[in-house]
Design a protein around this nucleic acid. Structure first.
Lengths: 147, 147
DNA sequence: ATAATTGAGGATAAATTTGTCTTTAATATT
DNA sequence: AATATTAAAGACAAATTTATCCTCAATTAT
């Protein structure tokens, strides 16, 4: 559904948000390991998330790393997709038609629009904090390792 | 959501299935134009759909082209995705986690699984014929041109 | 100040996807 | 049989995505 970049971005943001060892920032190495993503590539993604529209923040130097403000935690998950340039995926026609619309629907439109709506709602109502909290509780996970 | 290849494939199959000028096959040029796809690339895709698991059929030579049997029209749309190597997209974890499951869910799992289920149901219950019929009726479209 | 640590930024590379072109094979028509 | 038409097949090219690496800048600690 999403690109690897977007997937890594979502995982990284959730992982960073879930860290509540107050004031302890998370380093690239730790993040990449935690979310099972290639380190250097993850660095690029974190760079985008830090720059562009400032979802996360960073500090360089010893004990530096990434963190997210309480304010940013209130952002809907969709914001992460947007910053990664994939906000549109949720709006797109399943058949890839630019002109697909209510007045000129594709053969899948009528049925898919109901699903699309839920998808959009999900990504717009769930906040980064919501997901991070779930994870902190220990009910959900974000890596591919078994234990 | 899907790759261009899968999108073109879906559009092409629906377009071919919608043609009911009995026994008149559709040529590559016509198909590509009708579904707004690059001709040569579409040729490759039609080749896959014709070979692999035989969703559509073809004949070479004058008046040759592509067509689909009534039997193949009964196939669920998902079959097209499968042949294009994208059947898995519908099952995948939104965060891209290979290990995401009911017992080890990702932070989006609980909510997304409900949507995923509908998505799978849609692609498994809708047949190629269903979509083609809609199109033949003239209620739905498959190209990006306005008129 | 110096050294060590860590992210930022840029260049580059590998892999994959998307796309084109040319030749060959099959079929139909003359 | 010769010619024309059309898909198949293969080689190749362009574009995009994914990934790595190296140097620079910022920050901290000594």
């Amino acid at each position: 559904m999403f690109s690897k970049s977007a997937e890594y971005a979502l995982r990284a943001v959730i992982y960073i948000a879930q860290n509540d060892t107050e004031s302890k920032k998370l380093g690239l190495a730790e993040i990449a390991k935690a979310i099972d993503s290639p380190k250097s590539f993850t660095a690029k993604i974190l760079q985008i998330l830090t720059a562009e529209n400032k979802i996360i923040s960073s500090v360089r130097g010893p004990n530096g790393g990434f963190y997210i403000t309480e304010k940013s935690k209130q952002l809907p998950v969709r914001k992460v997709l947007e910053v990664m340039g994939e906000g549109g995926v949720l709006d797109k026609c399943v058949l890839g038609l630019a002109k697909c619309s209510e007045t000129k629907p594709c053969p899948m439109h009528a049925q898919y629009k109901l699903i699309k709506k839920q998808l959009i709602t999900l990504f717009e109502t769930k906040t980064i904090k919501n997901l991070a909290d779930e994870m902190r509780k220990g009910d959900v996970f974000i890596n591919n390792r078994l234990k």
